[in-house]
């Protein structure tokens, strides 16, 4: 239902052109959940915003590539078509639930507007629909809460309201950009649960962007790992966690503290590369523990590592397995 083909997104800044997204190709099937994982500056947010063409232009430009939603290229749509896309097919849930709601209007009014923008219907019917949506996202006593202002809700409840607004257009794809980062763990658990229920009930595909590997482990069917504007590994959740085929993903998994075992953490040395002047070879080479001379010159493409599993590394699956074993035994 969504197909991204060799997408490039550039940001024109005073320091030069930032290649925020640098040749990304993937697709999402109806009803599945895809997680995009990456650190800040990896381009994951810019990528997500590109799907609805929400990056401010300028500085953003789309020099190459296509984004198809139901076989229509988003990057060639006019304003009217974009509005239709945003109102009906793709909806977004943002990170900060406070600044995404208009503080001077009642939640119900904002919700009803969203519903009526999607499909014209009488006010009374729209209001009933709004109450139903609020009930679906787990807001207690929706009949009276519909007349509250955003500041009268807590952070978790506001995020629920935002999800309700996203659902108002009955989208086929829900893009959630760090939807739980601003929330406490117990509230995060509630919202993640809600996303799962919603998917069950509405059958929408979900694209969740996060830096938290725990969140994708819980939610995603497939995971897309981004580094310096590129996809470096793409596969099922099992593939990514148990059959890791790319040194960056592997290092990332080893750098996070896990419950129980008190082993020393193994950080990734150094910093992500500049996206204005990326390294000539592999982007991860300067920080990679297994980098060789060849990595400095060869810029690896995403290549298959098994059924639906892809990685961008000159090491083959078997070579990388043996290195991993070596490290584990030492």
């Amino acid at each position: 239902m969504l197909k991204v083909d060799n997408l490039h997104v550039h940001l024109d800044t005073s320091d030069g052109i930032v290649k925020a997204v640098d040749g990304v190709t993937f697709s999402i099937e109806a009803g599945e959940t895809i997680g995009i994982v990456g650190e800040s500056g990896s381009g994951k947010s810019v990528l997500a915003h590109s799907l609805m063409r929400l990056n401010p232009e300028p500085p953003a430009t789309y020099p190459k590539g296509k984004v198809y939603v139901n076989d229509r290229n988003v990057l060639q749509m006019n304003k009217k078509e974009l509005r239709h896309l945003r109102g009906n097919q793709v909806a977004m849930v943002f990170q900060d639930p406070m600044s995404s709601l208009n503080p001077v209007f009642k939640v119900g009014k904002q919700l009803i507007e969203g519903i009526q923008a999607h499909r014209k219907r009488p006010k009374k019917e729209a209001k009933e629909k709004a109450i139903e949506l609020l009930r679906d996202v787990g807001i207690p006593d929706p009949e009276s809460r519909i007349d509250s202002y955003p500041h009268q809700f807590s952070g978790g409840m506001r995020q629920r309201v935002l999800i309700a607004m996203a659902l108002a257009s009955e989208p086929k794809l829900l893009v959630a950009d760090e939807p739980t980062t601003a929330l406490d763990v117990t509230i995060q658990a509630q919202v993640l649960d809600l996303l799962k229920q919603i998917q069950h009930k509405y059958g929408a595909a979900i694209l969740i962007i996060t830096h938290d590997l725990g969140v994708v482990a819980q939610l995603a069917d497939r995971i897309l790992v981004m580094y310096a504007g590129r996809i470096v590994e793409f596969g099922s959740t099992q593939d990514i966690f148990y059959r890791t085929a790319m040194p960056y993903t592997w290092s990332l998994l080893r750098s996070i503290p896990t419950a129980g075992a008190k082993r020393r953490l193994i950080p990734i040395d150094g910093q992500p590369p500049s996206l204005i002047h990326p390294p000539k070879g592999c982007n991860f080479e300067p920080r990679c523990p297994f980098a060789t001379d060849a990595c400095r010159h060869i810029d690896p493409d995403l290549e298959p590592r098994g059924d639906g599993h892809q990685a961008a590394c000159i090491l083959s699956a078997s070579e990388f397995e043996s290195i991993k074993e070596e490290v584990a035994s030492s």
Binding site: V185, T186, I187, Q188, Q190, G214, A217, F241
Partner: peptide, 27 residues
């Protein structure tokens, strides 16, 4: 216990097995 179970564990098999205690309501 609720806090511990709410933390998403970066391990898919572990994660889906856990019996989550989802706390009701807000602070």
């Amino acid at each position: 216990r609720a806090l511990l179970s709410a933390v998403p564990v970066p391990d898919p098999s572990e994660e889906r097995r856990l019996d989550r205690i989802v706390l009701n309501g807000e602070l």
